[in-house]
């Protein structure tokens, strides 16, 4: 068994933690955006580093990708990638409550990504009695070539990607984005320790 095979119970626990985090993040988002956010159960998939680019390739041609690092106690850390289809992002400024000429497309997508990533991971962390810090979000690129390059540069640094597919639908607006959490092996072992502790409690 290698480091990141999860047992059925561990998988179930992780899915539940993520569902709850998603639920509360959407609630915060709905209040902040003053709209209703339709929520689908996020799908969770574990992807080995060497296969990640392939799984992304199937879904994406032209994309915008925003990357943001996260790190908490007990060695839980990684990098969140938010991957958008460009047609989703035309009216983001409107959705975010800014005037259209107040901010550029790059800024809109970075702003939204930061909100999605941090609200989600904050709730996730609080459920496991942890607390996250974040690096500044960066727009990687608008094309897959550069994203692959970025992933290849990073690949020595992480072994498993947790691909959390989240689809946000907001009244009057609709956009889909994939959130991919890249997690290095040591951090996976640390997460499993935390999961096992939760499972023991129940």
């Amino acid at each position: 068994m290698n480091a990141f095979d999860l047992t059925e119970d561990q998988q179930d626990c992780l899915q539940e933690l993520i569902n709850v985090a998603m639920g509360q993040a959407s609630d915060q988002l709905a209040r902040y955006l003053d709209t209703f956010v339709y929520l689908k159960v996020p799908s969770i998939e574990q992807v080995k580093s060497e296969h990640l680019i392939d799984t992304l390739n199937q879904d994406l041609k032209e994309t915008a990708v925003v990357s943001q690092g996260f790190f908490g106690y007990e060695g839980i850390r990684g990098e969140a990638l938010l991957i958008y289809q460009p047609q989703d992002s035309n009216r983001l400024a409107d959705l975010l409550g800014y005037e259209a000429d107040e901010l550029t497309f790059d800024e809109q997508i970075i702003d939204l990504s930061s909100i999605l990533t941090t609200t989600f991971l904050n709730v996730f962390a609080s459920q496991i009695d942890n607390q996250m810090s974040y690096s500044a979000p960066r727009l990687l690129s608008a094309n897959l070539g550069t994203v692959s390059e970025h992933l290849q540069q990073q690949s020595f640094n992480w072994d498993l990607a947790l691909k959390v597919r989240i689809s946000y639908q907001v009244t009057d607006y609709s956009f889909n984005c994939d959130m991919v959490l890249l997690i290095p092996e040591q951090a996976i072992i640390n997460i499993k320790t935390v999961i096992d502790r939760i499972l023991e409690e129940f």
């Binding site: 539940e16 998603m22 639920g23 509360q24 959407s26 609630d27 709905a30 209703f36 459920q127």
Partner: peptide, 25 residues
Amino acid sequence: ISADVQPEMQNRVMDLGAKAFLRKP
């Protein structure tokens, strides 16, 4: 007992006759 805790969902649930709405966890 739900992860989806938006007010609109709570209202729908209460309208359908639930006694209470508790958030997860």
